[in-house]
Write a protein that binds this DNA or RNA. Structure first.
Length: 844
RNA sequence: GCCCUCGUGGUGAAAUUGGUAGACACAACGGACUUAAAAUCCGUGCCUUUUUGGAGUGCCAGUUCGAGUCUGGCCGAGGGCACCA
């Protein structure tokens, strides 16, 4: 018997699929559509196991839906703008474009070897002009709708590299490359007004019932809706300041008022700018503002002003006003009223500056209560609060206080959101140019549509400091209608690129517009989106915002939610290894005989320290290269393994043994295939085959159900069961038509998982047009069932009986059956619980 | 600190949603074939002296004829957010 030659079979089918354009899809309104999308990759160089897992999960679904008769859109593209290209360019003296295109070429061919059912004719790349010219149009469209604006904002500034750093590039307060201490610097930047849609984005989550709850909760917290009130405090001061407004969710604690605190960026700071001490204080605040740890552990600091604030509920209650480092300008109104008894930060602050601490909420109405080192934020009742005394905290007290404040013109009910506007300016070269220019007075103008796209200039060598576009004077300046203009030299955040690519996939050939409405109407929304949970907030929220922004003031575009279903897959993990010098080692550099003790391959005397299993990463060297695995075992085996061990939403541990087992399984399936073909050829006369038909029906049912639920690991187990069953069953007499018919169905069930193998075997039995097998529930019904007998709730026996047996017959059977009869010990039956076709519980 | 998720054999995990716990696979051990090894195939797996016995899904209670599954408390692991007023 010949071995299964995966190499020639896989090559053969991949060629055929390409030649016959099997996976290319067209708009076809007579067919139901299914849009299956996996998050497109960043072309970093080579594909990794995470990609293999992501795209295999998606491919299984796409092939399954195709077999079910859907018109399936399953495209692939490249998220190809971004910093690594610039870094690589600086290191290797290659321009970012060449580097990126080389990577795309490599990764495309690697993905093709996986045998994915991708419509490669629809491939897109965000760094191509064909793509980003449409993005520039969207930018201008949003500009016209008032959803884009410019304002000064703080950035992480690296003074050595003279560049802006992303938050994740700031390590311990220092620039990741230069090591310089990062400064806070104010720059003029472009923003998308995402917060305008806070409520819509929050409400929209309710409609996404095919999203993981976890992701929805994360987005909900990110948007951070809160109910409260704006309160106006009269101010006494030598300066021309009349009042200060604060936002609070706890107006009911106003009688615990002890100070008022402003952000150093508050507009009123202008009255103190000349004060040397205030300047020092502000500098101190901006220094500690960059790292997360410093924020968490920072001491509460304040700068006392000459202002005195008056409690709107009690004119005699006057408190000092501070600037404080813990008040943020970009939330609420940049000013808070301090109630130390019921807010921990306020308590810390009050203790430091010896401010009054008055408790106004107590947990129990009739008991005394005292505040020590912990603020009380729980439920209870108001006291020490004049006319508010006795109100129930929080609901009644908050509502009543707001009512009072509104009635007396002292405050206003207000809903606030934590969600901030999206800063989209990046001081980098390798991104989409912002289609804006500035006139001599620094006023922005839109680049006229006919001048789009604003192309990136070709740059011979990227300098190591500053924004590369800033020094491209030939590109930077241009004359329009006799006037000189200066281009915007910032480029767009790459998250903008990925916020609408799923629309582009619907009409990648449209050269005039980003998408064709008719095609978007047909294909969108994405029915199933698949990717890593690390994009739970930003990418997914930004994409949702884009739909809001495009449909805003738009009569034809109605879509609000881009992704109907979302699935977040787990990561691929591997053990980590270090040598005696604490250096990371890759799995290829170590060997082991017993799987417990590991040694260096080139030095078998050196012991290896085996570290914890972690997600594969280059820095820890615990990666397995998919290309060599595909080469050694074949795409089908890799696909099988990556799906077999763990449920797709959980992390999976890479295991060489597991990989080998999957490989052997495919070989065993090939042997089974040969046996089946031989059996079908021989001419035994028999009518047997009911067992096989029943088994196949059950398999169809299980596999279909599990596919809908993403329980792919269970399906692989179902296939092992199928093998174990059929390899024995084939030794018994079976009518050849029955065998052929059932076996064909089994091959189709396996098709989404091991498509090359399945296609090869199906072609051997001349099956070309294939459809997903269906069954009716009645076909699943077994005549003979296992019936469980419990005594006092414990399983005591299993009886083989006919379906539909009633309680009395089963009791008779128990009494007749020597053995089970003994179980009753001649005791009287107190009660029985009978579950039809399943069990009987006898209480003695 | 707040929010979310999860705890099942040596390991990865199944369990028709309250009804036979551990399917399927990896690893281990025993056996068959072989001169030998690899590959392949068969079998074993907690406790008790055999069994149609007992215990058993992180721990402690509860609901129920019946709990891995539901409720409350505790312990542990992972993830997200973090001066958001």
């Amino acid at each position: 018997m010949d071995r299964y030659n995966f190499k020639s079979v896989e090559e053969k089918w991949q060629k055929l699929w390409k030649k016959e354009k099997v996976f290319s899809t067209k708009l076809d309104k007579t067919k139901k559509k299914f849009y299956c999308l996996e998050m497109f990759p960043y072309p970093s160089g080579k594909i990794h196991m995470g990609h293999v897992r992501n795209y295999t999960i998606g491919d299984v679904l796409a092939r399954f839906k195709t077999l079910q008769g859907y018109n399936v859109l399953h495209p692939m593209g490249w998220d190809s703008f971004g910093m690594p290209a610039e870094n690589a360019a600086r290191q290797n003296n290659l321009d970012p474009k060449t580097w990126t295109e080389l990577n795309i070429k490599t990764m495309r061919s690697q993905l093709k070897k996986l045998g994915l059912s991708i419509d490669w004719d629809k491939e897109i790349s965000t760094c191509s002009e064909d793509y980003y010219k449409h993005q520039q149009k969207f930018f201008l469209e949003l500009y016209d709708k008032g959803l884009v604006y410019r304002k000064e904002n703080y950035v992480n500034w690296d003074p050595i590299d003279e560049t802006v750093l992303a938050n994740e590039q700031v390590v311990d307060g220092k620039g990741w490359r230069s090591g310089a201490i990062v400064e806070r610097k104010k720059l003029n930047q472009w923003f998308f007004n995402i917060s305008k849609f806070s409520e819509e984005l929050l409400q929209g989550l309710e409609t996404l019932d095919q999203w993981p709850n976890k992701v929805k909760v994360m987005q909900k917290n990110w948007i951070g809706k809160s109910f409260g009130c704006e309160v106006e405090f009269k101010v006494e001061s030598e300066k021309p300041i009349e009042s200060i407004k604060c936002y609070t969710t706890r107006p009911d604690t106003l009688f615990g008022f002890s100070f008022l605190a402003l952000s150093v960026d508050h507009p009123l700071a202008k009255y103190y700018e000349d004060d040397r001490k205030f300047q020092d204080f502000r500098d101190e605040c901006s220094k500690s503002g960059t790292t997360e740890e410093s924020i968490a552990s920072a001491e509460k600091l304040g700068f006392k002003t000459d202002m005195i604030a008056v409690n709107p509920l009690d004119k005699n209650m006057k408190v000092p006003v501070y600037f404080a480092n813990f008040v943020l300008m970009d939330y609420g109104l940049g000013a808070v009223f301090g109630c130390p008894a019921h807010d921990q930060r306020d308590l810390d602050f009050a203790k430091k500056y010896n401010l009054k601490i008055t408790a106004v909420v107590k947990p129990e109405k009739d008991k005394d209560f005292e505040i020590n080192n912990e603020a009380y934020t729980g439920d209870g009742f108001l006291y020490n609060s004049n006319f508010l005394d006795g109100l129930k905290v929080p609901n009644e007290s908050v509502v009543k206080t707001i009512e009072f404040l509104e009635k007396n013109n002292l405050g206003k009910k207000k809903i606030n959101y934590r969600l901030k506007d999206w800063g989209i300016s990046r001081q980098r070269y390798w991104g989409c140019p912002i289609p804006i220019a500035y006139d001599e007075n620094d006023q922005p103008i839109k680049i006229p549509i006919e001048m789009l796209p604003v192309k990136l200039p070709e740059i011979d060598k990227l300098s190591s400091t500053g924004n590369p576009l800033d020094t491209e004077n030939e590109w930077k300046y241009f004359i329009l209608d006799g006037k000189k203009y200066r281009r915007e030299t910032d480029t767009l955040d790459t998250f903008v690129d990925s916020s609408w690519y799923f629309l582009r996939f619907c009409s990648p050939y449209n050269t005039n517009h980003g998408f064709t409405q008719e095609e978007v109407d047909y294909w969108m929304p994405v029915d199933q989106y698949i990717g890593g949970v690390e994009h739970a907030i930003l990418h997914l929220l930004y994409s949702r915002f884009f739909m809001q922004a495009i449909s805003h003031k738009n009569e034809t575009f109605k879509l609000k939610e881009p992704f109907n279903g979302l699935f977040t897959q787990g990561m691929v993990c591997h053990e980590t290894y270090k040598d005696q010098n604490n250096k990371w080692l890759s799995p290829e550099e170590v060997s082991s005989e017993d799987g417990k003790k590991f040694f260096k391959k080139n030095n078998p005397l050196e012991k290896i320290i085996v570290g914890p299993t972690e997600s594969m990463s280059k820095s820890k060297k615990n990666t397995i290269d998919p290309e060599s695995i595909i080469k050694n075992y074949g795409a089908d085996s890799v696909r099988l393994f990556i799906l077999s061990d763990s449920p797709p939403e959980k992390d999976v541990q890479w295991s060489d043994q597991g990989m080998l087992a999957s490989f052997r399984f495919v070989q065993k399936l090939w042997i089974l295939n040969s046996k089946v073909l031989e059996k079908v050829r021989n001419t035994d006369e028999t009518n047997e085959g009911e067992n096989l038909t029943k088994f196949t029906n059950q398999l169809i049912y299980k596999v279909t159900q599990n596919l809908e639920k993403f329980h792919y690991n269970v399906i692989i187990a179902n296939f092992y069961e199928m093998y174990n069953f059929l390899i024995k069953e084939i030794e018994k007499p079976i009518k050849k038509e029955i065998l052929a018919e059932n076996y064909k169905k089994i091959l189709i069930l396996m098709n989404p998982f091991i498509p090359h193998f399945s296609a090869e075997c199906l072609s051997n039995i001349n099956e070309e047009k294939i459809n997903w097998p269906s069954i009716s529930k009645e076909e699943l019904v077994e005549e003979e069932i296992n019936f469980v007998v419990q005594i006092n709730g414990k399983k005591r026996a299993i009886l083989k009986v006919n379906r539909g047996i009633d309680e009395n017959s089963i009791l008779d059977k128990i009494k007749l059956n020597i053995g089970t009869e003994k179980l009753l010990h001649n005791q009287k039956i107190k009660k029985t619980i009978f579950v039809s076709n399943r069990l009987i519980n006898i209480i003695l």
